[in-house]
Computed example of a mutant assay.
Amino acid sequence: MRRAGWAAVCGAVLLAAAAGGVTAALADGPADDPAVPASATSASVPGADSADAGFARDMAVHHQQAVEMSFVVRDRTDDEEVRRLAYDIANTQANQRGMMLGWLDMWGLPKVSSGAPMAWMGTAEGGHGSESGHSGHSGHGSGSGKGGPLMPGMATKADLARLEKASGERAEVLFLQLMTAHHKGGVHMAEGCVDRCRPGVQRDLAQGMVTAQESELSLMADLLKARGAKPE
């Protein structure tokens, strides 16, 4: 069953990569090329406050934390399953982050916003949690890069400090719990882009993120269960 889980995750990751991989090829294409999506043409560049730009900025920050947590746990456990999962998350989300920052460059839009994170979804969704918990809504960082409320699923400074101090199975369990919350928040954000972003490669990538991260959520639930733990 564990092998089937990895197969499903790998398939979902490949789907996400395929959805986003088109971006690199399109970014160099002429503006009047019919293969270039509307969001990539100078006549239809999204605004700085659009869902397209907001999602790219916020998800780039969200992905960066997932990459950081994955590198932390990789050095704190010898378990091959957890290390492989961490590598897959770090590799996939680092690549996707590069795509989203590339879109912002292509659109001539800032990579940070002075507004609250998640405003592109119609409401600022931070500010619900506490520094001691890891519901991911308060503590360190934000979509604006100025500190303040976090985006859905983001770990707090206290969470990250605990992960950095843990080792062995304790590090594995904590990573899986934190990443489960992180992925749930990421799915929520990606679904927001699917609903609000304009048709094109970014919305396709967001749908691929939903599929890939839901598969990884299922795998992480199995890994937690095998360790006598569950998501918090």
Rank of each mutant, 00 (worst) to 15 (best):
W103I: 06
D88K: 07
Q64D: 02
E68R: 00
G98L: 14
M106V: 15
Q65N: 05
D75R: 14
M99T: 14
Y87I: 12
R97Y: 06
D75G: 11
Q64A: 00
A94N: 10
Q65C: 02
N95V: 12
N95E: 14
L104R: 04
E81I: 11
R84A: 14
V72N: 00
R83M: 09
Q64P: 01
L104C: 13
T77C: 00
Q65Y: 01
W103V: 07
E81A: 13
D105H: 14
N95L: 11
E81Y: 13
I89Q: 06
R84F: 13
R76P: 01
S70P: 05
V72P: 04
M99L: 15
N91P: 07
M99Y: 15
G98P: 15
T92R: 11
Q96L: 12
F71T: 08
M99C: 14
E80A: 04
Q65A: 01
R74P: 05
R83E: 05
G98D: 15
A86V: 04
V72R: 02
M100W: 09
A94M: 10
A94Y: 10
L104A: 08
W103L: 11
A66L: 03
D88R: 06
T92L: 11
A94R: 04
A66T: 06
A86Q: 02
Y87C: 09
D105S: 15
M100Q: 10
R83Q: 05
L85G: 09
T92G: 12
D79N: 09
M106G: 14
A94C: 12
R76E: 03
R84T: 13
M99G: 14
R84P: 12
D75C: 08
L85W: 07
R83T: 08
D79E: 04
N91F: 07
M106N: 15
V72K: 03
W103M: 09
D75N: 10
E80D: 03
V73W: 03
R97C: 11
D79Y: 04
L104E: 08
Q96D: 12
S70H: 02
D78K: 07
T92S: 13
T77S: 00
N91Y: 10
E68L: 02
R83P: 10
A90C: 13
A66S: 03
V73F: 04
Q93H: 03
L104G: 10
W103E: 07
D79F: 03
I89T: 04
Q65T: 00
L104V: 13
M99N: 15
D78H: 06
G102A: 12
A66Q: 05
Q65V: 03
L101G: 03
D78V: 10
L101E: 09
Y87A: 10
D78L: 11
E80Y: 03
G98A: 15
A66G: 06
F71K: 06
W103N: 05
T77M: 00
M69W: 01
G102R: 11
S70C: 02
L85T: 08
D105K: 14
V72Q: 04
G98Q: 14
L101I: 04
V72A: 07
D105F: 15
M99K: 13
A66R: 01
L101F: 03
